[in-house]
């Protein structure tokens, strides 16, 4: 009995190892791949967390795309540029573009009317990126540098004191425009 124990070990151990290897190999690797893909996809999403795609945020949408269950063109703020990026990562053709061009023309941010705010903290709970400061019965304020303008704080507000306004960031981050295109005609052959 005692002598047979090491022998039993010798037989069982490799079996266990092989089984563990197999278990690890099959489902986990797939998960790893999805996690990696999700990270890659998430990196090119605009991170507005606006839920216009129908998911709870950019990362959940990236995960769904990585699992291959949804269309690639659901990101509204990212527009067709993001769609092309997703397609490139997945090595797929972008959908025959039904998506609008990205509307990065005028970014907006939420603004709280301090006179009407009652300090209910509902908007703070709704904000996906913690861009609203405040406490119960204290007036709330939006951190303009972090607000993505997703508008998710608007519906929960019981007194409708939040509105979207042009982002002051546009003013600060002035960009030089491209000089006009060449106006001279090319000499015709």
């Amino acid at each position: 009995m005692i002598a047979s124990l090491p022998a039993a070990f010798l037989i069982i151990l490799p079996l266990l190892l092989i089984l563990a290897r197999l278990l690890k190999f099959l489902p986990e690797n797939n998960n790893d791949a999805i996690t990696r893909l999700t990270e890659d996809l998430d990196r090119i999403l605009p991170q507005t967390q606006c839920r216009q795609c129908g998911y709870d945020g950019c990362e959940p949408y990236a995960r769904a795309v990585a699992k291959g269950t949804v269309a690639l063109n659901l990101c509204v703020p990212g527009g067709s540029a993001t769609e092309r990026g997703i397609a490139r990562i997945l090595g797929r053709e972008p959908a025959t573009s039904t998506n609008k061009e990205a509307h990065d023309a005028d970014p907006q941010i939420a603004v709280i009317d301090a006179a009407r705010c009652i300090g209910c903290v509902k908007c703070i709970r709704a904000c996906p990126v913690d861009a609203i400061l405040g406490a119960a019965k204290q007036v709330h304020a939006v951190l303009p540098g972090l607000c993505t303008g997703c508008g998710l704080c608007l519906p929960p507000c019981p007194v409708d004191c939040i509105s979207l306004a042009a982002s002051p960031r546009i003013n600060r981050h002035f960009g030089w425009t491209k000089p006009g295109r060449l106006r001279s005609p090319r000499p015709s052959a």
Partner: peptide, 12 residues
């Protein structure tokens, strides 16, 4: 975007 992503994941 990177900052926002971290904030979103932290909040979740």
């Amino acid at each position: 975007a990177q900052d926002l992503r971290e904030r979103f994941l932290a909040k979740q």
